[in-house]
Design a protein around this nucleic acid. Structure first.
Lengths: 156, 156
DNA sequence: ATATCTGCAAAGACTTTGCATGAGA
DNA sequence: TCTCATGCAAAGTCTTTGCAGATAT
């Protein structure tokens, strides 16, 4: 974990403060964990990672902060069918950029992909417009996931 | 509930039996509920509907049967972010046909839509092919959902 | 006949809440 | 200083499991 000094990136402080929240050690530690992983972490994963450096930060605090971070749009929450939620930094705060997920139904491995976006953009544009208009929805998000069986699980 | 006589559609019996399962009253009642609703039902919704006609069928049985039905592909399980799973008959068994979901993030109302599928088909085709090849995944399913705020929730 | 299925009760997994204490700005 | 944040323990919600008895084929 790189930012154990308790400062953390300024822009994250700014976003937190703009929303009326305070930047606290637990909050920062959680963002730090999320910013420095390639994986999709559960609340407990995050708790355990944070716990190594701050053993007195509790799981409750992790849950409560994830909720805040999801609400202000810094973090996105996903369900991959495993029965527990997974979290990742949202596009604007992540080095990953915009991507979608390819999920193995057997081992729940999740692959991020950002290829094949050209067809997607036109699909999303027209569908979002059509749906907004027809159903009077104010559309804010979409979720696109592909499911299948990964190479490893296929070979067993 | 139409099929209280205990027979139910033949094709459903066939599918169940083909997979090595038996057609039982609870199983049939559950399929019947799913076949005769326009909504997306939780396990408890189904339990309560079934319970009206068969008060001694338990919630456990509903869960166990839903698991079986999902495994043999007659039923599809969804998570809309509400914290509980919702179930519906899969395309082949449903009068709804292929559709996707538009979900209100406030009240969790779910709208089925099957418009705007033209762009989708080309998007899915090329993406599935690309993903299969690049990541050696055997792709079986996709999940496309749009999220937003419905008209009612916007006006309050 | 016998493998599958069921109901009940109990346990399990993940997440949320209450309340007194602690800490940012 | 004063509101927001935290930690602990307890509770809540949805779902699964164990086991003896019942049922479909």
């Amino acid at each position: 974990m790189p930012n154990q000094n308790g400062t953390g990136p300024r822009w994250m402080h700014g976003q937190i403060k703009c929303c009326g929240y305070r930047m606290t050690k637990p909050r920062e530690a959680i963002l730090d964990v999320l910013a420095n992983t390639q994986n999709h972490l559960s609340a407990e994963d995050i708790y355990m990672a944070v716990h190594k450096f701050y053993p007195n930060i509790g799981l409750t605090t992790v849950y409560r902060n994830l909720e805040v971070l999801v609400n202000i749009g810094m973090v996105v929450k996903f369900e991959f069918g495993e029965g527990k939620s997974k979290y990742e930094l949202s596009d604007e705060y992540s080095s990953k950029g915009h991507h979608h997920h390819l999920v193995c139904k057997e081992c729940y491995t999740v692959i991020d992909y950002s290829d094949f976006m050209k067809d997607e953009v036109s699909f999303l544009k027209s569908t979002e417009n059509g749906l907004s208009e027809k159903y009077k929805f104010n559309i804010t998000d979409h979720l696109i996931q592909f499911f299948g069986v990964c190479e490893k699980c296929t070979n067993k």
